[in-house]
Design a protein around this nucleic acid. Structure first.
Lengths: 270, 270
DNA sequence: GCATCAAACAAAGA
DNA sequence: CTCTTTGTTTGATG
C-alpha cells in the first residue's frame, strides 16, 4: 500500500540513478500487469534511454527517449528495486528491466499492480494517469481555492472524495486516517456539512501530513528502491484502535466505512 | 442484473409458494436498503398475510392483507431465495422474512437493491414504482400506438430511452443489446431519425425478446427462487465482442455509450 | 418540463 | 481505493 509519500520518494531515488541508462531487455513473468501484449510492451521500451523520473499520486512516470513512457502503479504492497551491475535479482518479481550497463530494475507486485508502456505521444490517452486529480505536492495546482471548488456541490462522504484518485491523487487508506483526525472530521461527514474552518484545516492537514511523511522517507513498513525502510512509525489514530486519543484520551475506535476500515477518535472527529 | 424476464419468473414462483403465509418476523442486516427505519419497516410487515405476488419492470410487488405492500428491487445481481421449513438460510443476506409456518425468504443484494415496506393505501405515493413506464408484457398497455407516442417529440439516443424505467419498465443493459440488434439500431441512433419500419421492428423486438427470455426462465447466470439457473445462454451480439455477427459476419464491437457499454454489429446496426 | 449529465451507493474481481 | 465494472435514482444545469 505505498501511497503518495512512498511513491514520491521512490521516484526521486529512481531519478537519481536511472536517467541516462538504456533499456536493453525486458522480462515479464506476469503479463496481467501489463497494458500491452508482451511483444509490443517490449518493443515500446527496449533500446530507449531513460530520462527524468517523476511521480503523480500513486503513479511513477519514467520518461524515455526517443519519446515513450514507462508507468508504474504498485497497487497494494508492490516493490521496485534497483540492482547495480553484478547484483542479482530477488527471488520474486513479475517484471524486470535490464539496462545496457548491466544494472537492472525489478518489480514485485504483492497484489495487483501495473507496469504500463506508453508509446510516444500517447500519454494523454493513458486513461488511468490522464484522469488523475489534483496533486497535493504541486503548490501551483493544489491551492485552497481549487480544493474548495472540488468540494463544492458534492454530497457524499468526505472520505470517499479524498480517496478518489480522480479528484485528489495519492491518498490511500493509511495516510487518510491521520489527515481526517487532524481536520477533526469523521470519515462519514457529508461534504456540504463541512464548515469553512474545517475545510481549511483539512486542506492544511493534507499538505502537511504528506510532506511530513516524505521528509521521513515514508512508512517504516514500506521499502525504498534499495530495500531500506522509511522512518515514519507512528500514527495518531490510524491502526491504533483501543489506544487513547493523543488529544483527549478517548479510546480510538475502528469502524467500517463502506469497504474500507477507519480509525477515529469518536470525540475529536465529528 | 436481473431484468424484466428474471423478475417476472421470480414473481411467478413467489406467487406459487407465498400466498397464504403470515409474516412472523423480519430480520435486517443492512438497513440502507430499506425505505423506513427498521422498527417501522417491521411494523408494516409483521402479522400480515401474503396475497398475490406480481411484477412490473424490475420490481416485485408482494401484496399483503390487511392491506400493505412489500416491494423488491434486486439492483445488480440481487437474489431472493425461498427456504422451506427447516431449511437454513444462506450465509449472505441483508433482509430475511420468517413466516408463521417456519418457512422463510432471504434477500441478498450484491450491489444496490431495495426492500421497501409500504403501508396500506400508500402504494400510489411510492415514487419509484409509481413512476414506472409502460409494461412490455401488458398487451393492453404496451401497444404500438402508445409506443409510437412515447418516441414522438424526443430527441435523445434510443438506448437512453429504452433504459429509462419511467418510460418503459424492465429493460437493462443486458437485454437491450440484442433488442437493438434485432431492430437494426445503433444505440446512439437519435429517436427522430428512426424510420417507421425501424420503429415497428423495435416494438416487435421488445415484445419478442423479453417473452422468449421468460420462456427460458431467464439468463443462465441468474438464479431463481430455488437457486436454479435460467436456460438462456446465447446472445447474438451482447457481450460477444470479437465474435462474428450472426447475420453478416462482421466483428462485433464493444463501445462506450455514456456510462454503459454496448455491443454492436457495426454493419447491421446504424 | 424535459433532456442530459454527473454523482452516489451496500461489492467483488482482476 | 488500485482500478474497473455494473444499474438505478436523484439532483443540477441548459
Amino acid at each position: 500500500m505505498p501511497e503518495l509519500p512512498e511513491i514520491h520518494c521512490l521516484a526521486e531515488q529512481m531519478n537519481h540513478v536511472l536517467p541516462g541508462k538504456t533499456i536493453a531487455a525486458v522480462s515479464v513473468r506476469q503479463p496481467k500487469c501489463l497494458n500491452l501484449p508482451v511483444p509490443e510492451f517490449t518493443r515500446v521500451l527496449v533500446k530507449r534511454r531513460v530520462g527524468p523520473v517523476t511521480s503523480r499520486g500513486k503513479w511513477v512516470f519514467v520518461s524515455l527517449r526517443p519519446e515513450a513512457h514507462f508507468l508504474l502503479n504498485l497497487g497494494m504492497g508492490g516493490e521496485v528495486r534497483y540492482h547495480a551491475p553484478g547484483e542479482s535479482l530477488p527471488e520474486k518479481w513479475q517484471v524486470a528491466l535490464s539496462f545496457a550497463d548491466k544494472s537492472s530494475l525489478s518489480l514485485a507486485f504483492w497484489w495487483f499492480g501495473y507496469a504500463h508502456a506508453v508509446p510516444g505521444g500517447a500519454l494523454a490517452s493513458h486513461h488511468m494517469t490522464a484522469s488523475l486529480g489534483l496533486d497535493p505536492l504541486n503548490d501551483g495546482e493544489f491551492t485552497y481555492p481549487r480544493f474548495s471548488d472540488l468540494l463544492r456541490g458534492r454530497k457524499g462522504a468526505v472520505k470517499s472524495l479524498l480517496l478518489d484518485q480522480t479528484k485528489i491523487a495519492g491518498i490511500g487508506n493509511v495516510y487518510i486516517q491521520d489527515i481526517l483526525f487532524h481536520a477533526g472530521l469523521h470519515p462519514h461527514r457529508r461534504i456540504p456539512e463541512i464548515t469553512e474552518p474545517e475545510r481549511k484545516r483539512l486542506f492544511a492537514a493534507l499538505r502537511k501530513d504528506l510532506r511530513a511523511a516524505i521528509r521521513l522517507g515514508g512508512l517504516e513498513y514500506e521499502r525504498d528502491l534499495y530495500g531500506r525502510r522509511g522512518r515514519l512509525k507512528d500514527f495518531l489514530v490510524g491502526y491504533r484502535e483501543g489506544s487513547p486519543c493523543p488529544t483527549c484520551g478517548t479510546t480510538v475506535e475502528k469502524i467500517k466505512t463502506g469497504s474500507t476500515a477507519s480509525y477515529i477518535c469518536p470525540h475529536c472527529q465529528t
